[in-house]
Structure formats: C-alpha cells, structure tokens
C-alpha cells in the first residue's frame, strides 16, 4: 500500500506541474518503493487515483521505462546496460557472467530472492563503460572482480 507520506509527496509533486503527466515518473518511483521494488496493478491504480489520471495512462508510462518493474523483484535490481559503448567494452560478457553467477536469465530473479537481473538500454554513463545500475546507484568501469565485490557487499 502507498504510505500516507508517499501520497502526500505525490500530491505535492503533482501540484508543481501544470500537467499531471509531468509528475508521473517521480510518483511511480515513490510507489515502486512502497510496493517492494515493483508496481503491481494496485499500485498503478493508487497512483492513477491520486494523480487523477487514467490507470491506462499510468500503466503505459510504467511499461515504457525499464526502471519500473511490473513483476515482483528481488531485494536488489541490477540493470546492465548493453548499448553501444558498454557493449564495445564487454557488457554482453558481463551480463552473461552475472546471469551465470546468479543462475538467472535477464528478467529473472535469483532463487534466493536477492537479485533481479535486467538488461537495459543506455543509462547515460558511456564515459565509464561498461556499467550497471544496482537499485539507485551506478557502478562503473566494471570487471568481473568488481562485480563479485559489489554483489558480496549487498545483503
């Protein structure tokens, strides 16, 4: 359920724009946090109601961005960029490495429920490719060893 605090915050953000559509991304982020890292149907309906938008509008927006999850996820979500710059520097190999290490295909969640692996397009960090985003943090200039370390530090 959306916390009262989030509802309040969503209303505040909505008020900052002439067009409620503009406030959808931050609103969906708040909802995604409240709902354990993903957006079930109920979350979209809840956001739509506060924003006075149609659920279809909100759902479509959530479906467009890879940073919103519409399926249950692990405690952490790993977004691996495989766009041009990252791919040239071995991103596809790293994605495979991660998949192998976690025992999942992109889009799946590891058996222990810790990690969800997602393949995404450019996250705007080409200068430090290859890179991945875990939850809300960027990890750059990746190597296999670096990945091992990062994963080990995450509960």
């Amino acid at each position: 359920m959306l916390t009262d605090k989030s509802k309040e915050e969503i209303r505040r953000i909505r008020g900052e724009y002439p067009d409620p559509d503009s406030a959808l991304l931050p609103a969906l982020y708040l909802a995604q946090k409240d709902y354990g890292g993903w957006l079930p149907e109920e979350a979209i309906d809840a956001v739509a109601e506060i924003m006075e938008l149609a659920p279809a509008r909100v759902g479509a927006m959530a479906s467009f961005y890879t940073l919103f999850q519409r399926q249950p996820v692990g405690r952490h979500v790993i977004y691996v960029c495989t766009n041009v710059a990252c791919s040239l520097l071995g991103a596809e190999h790293l994605l495979e490495y991660l998949g192998h290490k976690l025992g999942v295909e992109p889009g799946e969640t590891s058996a222990d429920g810790r990690f969800t692996l997602v393949e995404v397009e450019c996250l705007g960090s080409c200068g430090t490719a290859p890179m991945m985003q875990v939850d809300e943090h960027y990890f750059e200039n990746l190597t296999e060893e670096k990945i091992d370390r990062i994963l080990a530090e995450l509960a």
């Binding site: 979209i44 149609a54 279809a56 759902g59 479906s63 467009f64």
Partner: peptide
Amino acid sequence: DHELDLFGRGAGTRLTTFQGR
C-alpha cells in the same frame, strides 16, 4: 475515457488496455 494506451516500447509496443480490462 482514457482506456487505451501504448504499452512497452520500440518494436514491442502494443496497443491495449491496462491489465486487459
């Protein structure tokens, strides 16, 4: 009645209703 929208992105974009309603 904003019941239809485009879901997904790129070549996979689909016209549909939210959750198949």
